[in-house]
Design a protein around this nucleic acid. Structure first.
Lengths: 225, 225
DNA sequence: AAAGATTTTAAGCCAATTTTAAGCGTAACC
DNA sequence: GGTTACGCTTAAAATTGGCTTAAAATCTTT
């Protein structure tokens, strides 16, 4: 799940980014309109949601919105606006935005709206499992045979990504993008280290690993039979 | 306003009944657990408050409480207990009681609690606990092993937030929003200071902290087993 | 206005986590 | 069977993030 924030005030942008990252989203920031539009269009299908500030230096929000819509009809766009007149909002929605939110807003509110727009698979599951391993997102815990397993943040994210894609291959590029939020410069040796760490923690001695390597492609957690 | 008293000692039951009647409440008495459960369930929505004795012949209080909760989630239940260990109270609250009162109690105290519970339409819990720590929202007190702990306003709010989310991770962004009501300033270092203060006051020397740190994510108070 | 308490800011420290790097083992391909 | 590329493993280096203090700022109380 990747979100693009187009916002010139870095403090706001960073706050939103950090919050969203904690929720497990990958986040990019564009600090001006031109850059934002470029990113939105160049990586068209990369983004699952775009957060768009209304007031931007140079190119303003409404124009960006129109331009994005010219290229892509579907990506959900949420407007951030300080304005409180109805007209402004109407303009935004007419330009093709899906929703709007007024500043200052609570982060929870923003999150709720993002979830609504993203809700293609209804409510996101809070618990994932594979064979004897269970992950609870809300509690932020992982257990193996009911016994707690301590994971670091990165380990947790990686496992979460693998579990969310249970039964499917996770390509190395996909992992490095979604878990590490790195787009170019794929020195992907970090993945090895973390897969190794996960296996050490999750696989009992003599057991075959929960995580199977698919050479030249990536990794997979097998779906239960 | 109808109140059900489930209590086997008739002298106590009558004492309470008389007092409550003077206050204008309609009162029923069940002098054993079985009868009490029956009455509670058969006249489910009749009662506005249930006073439930802990020690009952036959069916005990905790089981009654659980059974009532199975049928009805909202009716406020106040536990009467002579026990003075924390565990007993904890069990009661876990079983779904809203409040508790220790015998012997002053009638005024009971009345006050009843009034409080009746006034709330969404019966939010008034008492939170975790291991040997207990927080009473109404009284605005916190105790550790029954011994009062003095907290400042912010300390209290932070602890309350953690307790309300017992068992779940409280992310830093969530804390800063709900406890501090800050939405954009992402300098969250205040949290550290307050967690530190809480720990100093709540954790005895050598004990592991009630509040566990989840690095890169936030904090959590573990649910009791 | 002063004193006291509470809250916030700031900085240094330390430990856990993350990343980098290098050597090794092994599957795949010729 | 040899070669190559890829993944595994380990350890050391770099970084991050939380802890702890103390001082500054703010709010209360007298």
């Amino acid at each position: 799940m990747r979100i693009l924030i187009i916002e010139d005030e870095t403090s706001i942008a960073h706050f939103i980014r950090d919050g969203l990252k904690e929720e497990g989203y990958a986040v990019d920031i564009a600090d001006n309109g031109k850059k934002g539009l470029q990113m939105a269009i160049n990586y068209l299908d990369e983004y699952d949601v775009i957060l768009l500030d209304w007031m931007l230096p140079g190119l303003n929000g409404i124009e960006i919105c129109r331009n994005i819509r010219k290229e892509n009809k579907t990506v959900p766009i949420i407007f951030l606006t300080a304005k409180d007149t109805v007209d402004e909002v109407v303009f935004g929605l007419e330009a093709g935005a899906n929703d709007y939110i007024r500043k200052p807003f609570s982060f929870e509110e923003l999150l709720a709206r993002i979830r609504v727009l993203m809700r293609k698979d209804e409510t996101q599951p809070l618990v994932f499992f594979a064979s004897n391993i269970m992950m609870n997102i809300e509690k932020h815990t992982v257990t193996k045979n009911e016994i707690p397993v301590e994971l670091t943040q990165k380990e947790f994210s990686l496992l979460e990504y693998l579990l969310r894609n249970k039964g499917k291959v996770c390509r190395r590029t996909g992992i490095i993008e979604k878990v590490w939020d790195i787009h170019f410069n794929y020195d992907t040796s970090v993945i090895d280290v973390y897969i190794n760490a996960l296996r050490k923690k999750l696989d009992g001695p003599g057991e075959s690993s929960v995580i199977t390597t698919i050479r030249g492609v990536g990794y997979k957690i097998e779906a239960d039979k």
